[in-house]
């Protein structure tokens, strides 16, 4: 038997990353800000988006691609807060969204009329960290009902994220959660991480989140600023 060895040295992520680059070029050419929301299941991604649509929906055009392993429940919830199309991607068992799924979902979205694109990833702190979807930044949600050491347990996700949103802070009085310690762990993993403290239920900290989005959208937009009056 003669064995021929073929040198390959090709990244397994190369094809995904190529599609992600194409997605990023499209959204950048349209002046759209794209944020990839990642978290463990139940951290409050959909609730944060519902409140965000309520606060900003009349001010800017927000499109959403939302991924779930099964069901379109999150898309149905979000659709009640916007007249824009909410694109549901049911991954059928896969634990993350990939760039091809986002690319296909964007076919139904008019990016030329979009200011802000949210990609709500599948709830999972491991796999989504590895997949570039063409977003400008990953935003990791971290709820106070989780352990303070989540950033140490899932360092890659907290390293990949540019922003962190601590959620459910209205529950802090009822939990033994040590907020300074949790924030310390997050900054230990990623010293540049911007951390916002929020409660979508009481509205605490939501002004900071909304101000952050306004600022980021205005930096990206190549269209005239929306009238706030």
């Amino acid at each position: 038997m003669t064995v021929r060895v073929i040198d390959v040295r090709e990244s397994v992520m190369a094809r995904n990353n190529e599609i992600a680059r194409s997605v990023r070029e499209r959204i950048e050419s349209e002046g759209v800000l794209a944020l990839n929301l990642v978290s463990s299941p139940g951290a409050g991604k959909t609730t944060l988006l519902e409140k965000t649509l309520d606060a900003l929906g009349d001010e800017m055009a927000i499109a959403i691609v939302t991924g779930d392993v099964q069901t379109q429940n999150d898309a149905d919830r979000l659709a009640r807060h916007t007249s824009s199309l909410v694109q549901a991607v049911v991954t059928g068992g896969a634990c993350h969204l990939d760039a091809l799924q986002v690319d296909k979902a964007l076919e139904a979205i008019d990016l030329s009329r979009t200011d802000l694109l949210f990609i709500e990833n599948v709830g999972n702190l491991v796999c989504p960290a590895a997949w570039d979807l063409g977003e400008h930044a990953k935003v990791v949600l971290f709820s106070v009902t989780e352990g303070e050491d989540k950033p140490l347990k899932y360092p890659r996700m907290f390293r990949e994220a540019r922003h962190a949103v601590m959620t459910k802070i209205d529950l802090l009085p009822y939990l033994p959660f040590d907020l300074p310690r949790a924030m310390g762990y997050a900054r230990e993993v990623n010293p540049d991480l911007e951390i916002l403290l929020t409660s979508a239920t009481t509205g605490q900290g939501m002004d900071d989140w909304i101000a952050f989005l306004r600022r980021e959208v205005s930096h990206r937009s190549n269209r005239p600023a929306p009238s706030l009056g």
Partner: peptide, 13 residues
């Protein structure tokens, strides 16, 4: 590190 790649293939000629 975080490398993830197909390095080589061996084929029976």
């Amino acid at each position: 590190g975080d490398e993830l790649r197909v390095d080589y293939l061996e084929v029976d000629e």
